[in-house]
Design a protein around this nucleic acid. Structure first.
Lengths: 330, 330
DNA sequence: AACGTTATCGGTAACGTTAACGGAAATAGG
DNA sequence: CCTATTTCCGTTAACGTTACCGATAACGTT
């Protein structure tokens, strides 16, 4: 509640505020001994510099804002770890804003972060709506889209090779002998869902398996939806022998529904997830899934953003990360 | 990069900066029409107020700092959700700092948050070291300890009834017919581990089962440790028929070790976890566990902290939340 | 000895905002 | 019609820090 100011430190050290500032910030034009003295006194008094004042004066906060869609999804938690680590290394702090997949909250979050004058933004966008994104471009604020791409706008983005992921997943099931593969997907206006669908089609095409639209469903991407949609497919007696789930969470839900029906995995129904979250190896049977470079996704995003902030700005750059399949029991 | 200032808004509206401020902050002493005009122009120009300047002037940031031990643990993620929601409702923002269970990082995090001049702090402490906590008391900065208690210091804290949790868990296993119950616990210098141990002993005592210290182990509280310690117990042919795990994550690890040994749960080995994280109901067999009021833990903490910040400060208050057992398949 | 150079420091202003005060105009009250 | 009150607005200063410029002293150079 009672903070020490630089002025107090300076008075105690019998130097000007300016010199004290030089000591604190390790700047030149100061004698080595006076610097030591100032630092010593600052420590004694418990000086903690006022970030608000620094930000106001220097117009830099050393902070990047992270707008994340859903931190209860372990996938994002891991991406966040990568972001945190990379930021820490570069001496940046992060402020987190959770949007809970709500577009209005996304707008609020961005405004809040701008009010805090973050030096840049990392965003995992909720929808294909790009109003607020365009606003950011207009305002000329450094930002990077994480985990997906806006094809129609020139933005910096780091994302995964979703087409390959969809292809590998489908191909694996085909090689297991499946020909009727259900895809429980996310909403198609999001680019990852679009990419995975494309990969799915590509694999079917390659192995000359006819595409059956009735096997493809679209919806929310949480456990409950995975459970419900699988349950419905089973009750409708839809003709399928395998499921390609949009992500691991949905695969968990699907697994539950299949088990409840008395069917076995993988003997009766094949199943592949996506993301490789930590619990996927624990559940039984352990889940075959697509492994994304989650940490790297975060790290690359930070690097790209910082290159903006520091002015090495060329034209927008898009980075696509490779994916791989992790074969387990399903 | 190019932000609009209040001065620009004021000039455009042909009023003083002060009047513009009155409009933005919805303060009295301003004509209704001029207020509307200013707000309109502010919106047109895309004015976003500079939080740093406001903080500097008002000495309030409208922000609370949250120091969390490990955001990869779903338990904390849910507590955090409660915190976020409660804070949002009261028009406070949160800044998150992850310590990864490292004491030095905890100190750094606290310093960082103080530099940002947060109005208050919520802390899930790493250890029983209380140097930095005492510093906070000295500096007279509002804070609340979340999820545990420092018995020997007068601090505000919100935590769970760990003794009851330990008791319920152990009692459940006893009623299932178990008499040799292994406890894989966390380090004892943390108060939750201490409380759960006390509950464990209390239950044994009530049902006149002798305490065997060799059944109690102590260590880290992640999946790997749960796996390793269980594996060792099995290989040492320790005489036990049930496991009480410190938390669900450890129970998952224990489950894996037991399965690998070819034993069945719950037929051969009884198992109870703690925390009731979302995956506990998904894993098979679904995990019997102790349910904590995670959301409420977050909410109560925020309430307590805000009562400090707003000056309604009596003597330190400790809030203990009730727990319950969720009986599933194990 | 006269000069330039370097090291070290201080003074002033500024960042964007709000608090405190004062003043003018409009309104009410008698 | 005069005074008291209210409404509305502007001026000034301040929050804590750093950038910019200038000043002094010590030192080296010719």
């Amino acid at each position: 509640m009672k903070y020490i100011t630089l002025k107090m430190v300076a008075e105690r050290a019998e130097v000007s505020v300016n010199t004290a500032s030089r000591a604190i910030n390790n700047k030149p034009d100061i004698n080595e001994e006076t610097k030591k003295r100032v630092l010593q006194i600052a420590k004694e008094l418990g000086y903690i510099r006022n970030a608000a004042a620094v930000a106001l004066r220097t117009k830099k906060t050393g902070t990047i804002g992270v707008v994340i869609a859903d931190n209860s999804n372990p996938f994002y938690a891991e991406v966040l770890n990568g972001i945190e680590e990379a930021a820490r290394e570069k001496n940046y702090h992060i402020i987190l804003a959770n949007t809970q997949r709500d577009y209005q909250k996304e707008e609020e979050a961005i405004n809040l972060l701008l009010a805090k004058r973050v030096d840049g933004l990392l965003i995992t966008p909720v929808q294909d709506r790009d109003d607020d994104i365009k606003k950011l471009i207009e305002a000329n604020i450094p930002f990077v889209i994480v985990g997906r791409d806006f094809e129609n706008i020139e933005v910096d983005a780091v994302y995964n090779n979703e087409v390959k992921g969809g292809f590998l997943s489908t191909e694996y099931l085909i090689k297991q002998g499946h020909k009727r593969i259900a895809l429980i997907n996310g909403f198609l206006h999001k680019s990852p869902a679009k990419g995975r669908l494309e990969g799915y089609k590509k694999a079917l095409n390659k192995y000359r398996i006819p595409l059956d639209e009735s096997l493809i469903s679209v919806g929310d991407i949480n456990i409950e939806d995975g459970y419900e949609r699988t349950k419905q497919m089973l009750e409708k007696n839809l003709d399928f022998t395998a499921i390609f789930a949009y992500n691991d969470m949905m695969a968990f839900g699907a697994m539950q529904a299949v088990k409840e029906k008395g069917l076995r995995i993988p003997e009766d129904i094949g199943l592949v997830g996506y993301d490789d979250i930590p619990f996927s190896s624990l559940i039984s049977p352990s889940l075959t899934t697509i492994k994304l470079k989650k940490q790297e996704l975060g790290i690359e995003s930070v690097m790209l953003l910082l290159s903006h902030i520091n002015g090495n700005r060329e034209k927008p750059k898009k980075i696509m990360l490779d994916v791989d399949i992790i074969v387990r029991k399903t």
